[in-house]
């Protein structure tokens, strides 16, 4: 059928439905325009809602458009229907509290991707490509890339968790100011500047405590010192590092 003939047929069906109350004509019209709904639903697929559901809500939008379309208007029914169908699909996502849903999905995917990277690395004997991870996770490559970004942000911000014996001090405190996750890596050099202010023994304790994550007691037994002694050395070391950092020495901030 030519486009003009198709358009004519749509108008005929619409008139039969509107003017004569012919329900079968409306059904035909819905059927004729369903490819439009499928085409729009496809664009929203892969965002956490099943494609079939999107087609269903899209079809509701199509029916609304058919019911509301003004025959006197000089536009195409399909032109008029696009925003109505898209609106219905978006409403569906909103109703499913998309704004909460997607970040959570991304966090979960990020955990899954991290595990897959480990598994695939040992399986393939090399670091997997984004395409390989996407195939294994059965998601889009774009999602994998975002998930990897999320994972990176997550790892770096976790450096700001409390690390001092009583939990009253975070790594961030040693750096002298609050910071966003991404900057933490760059500022590793700042921490090293602070470490330079320490004796060999103090540095070893700081590294064991904050880098290796040992408890004070574990450090004490490893170094043959009392836990009290370790605690004192640690306090002194942190103070020395603070002093060094506060001096602004080597700080490009």
């Amino acid at each position: 059928m030519s486009l003009v003939a198709e358009r004519r047929a749509h108008i005929d069906l619409l008139e039969a439905y509107r003017l004569n109350g012919d329900g079968a004509a409306r059904d035909r019209l819905v059927e004729e325009l369903m490819p439009l709904v499928h085409s729009l639903a496809r664009r929203y697929a892969g965002r956490g809602e099943p494609y079939e559901d999107l087609v269903q809500v899209g079809a509701i939008g199509l029916i609304k458009a058919i019911d509301r379309f003004d025959l006197e208007r000089g536009v195409e029914l399909s032109t008029y229907a696009v925003p109505t169908i898209v609106g219905e699909i978006r409403r569906h996502f909103r109703d499913r509290s998309w704004s909460v849903h997607v970040p959570r999905r991304m966090k979960e995917l990020s955990l899954r991707v991290s595990r897959l990277v480990d598994d695939l690395s040992s399986e393939l004997g090399k670091a997997p490509t984004v395409a390989e991870i996407a195939a294994a996770a059965e998601v889009e490559e774009e999602d994998v890339i975002e998930a990897l970004e999320t994972a990176r942000a997550h790892t770096t911000t976790s450096l700001s968790t409390p690390i001092s014996p009583g939990g009253e001090l975070a790594l961030i405190d040693m750096l002298g100011e609050d910071e966003a996750g991404y900057e933490t890596l760059e500022r590793g050099s700042v921490v090293r500047t602070g470490l330079d202010a320490l004796s060999e023994r103090e540095r070893r304790i700081v590294v064991l405590r904050f880098v290796k994550g040992l408890t004070q007691s574990e450090i004490a037994s490893e170094m043959g010192l009392s836990q009290m002694h370790v605690s004192r050395l640690l306090r002194g070391a942190l103070a020395a590092m603070h002093g060094r950092l506060d001096d602004g020495e080597g700080l490009p901030l």
Binding site: L3, L36, L40, E76, S78, T79, V82, P83, V86, G87
Partner: peptide
């Protein structure tokens, strides 16, 4: 533009206008 006449293109623009 008319989606029927412009095919995918018209639809692309209609989508951009919708969102």
């Amino acid at each position: 533009w008319r989606p029927d006449e412009l095919g995918e293109d018209g639809m692309g623009l209609a989508i951009i206008r919708a969102v």
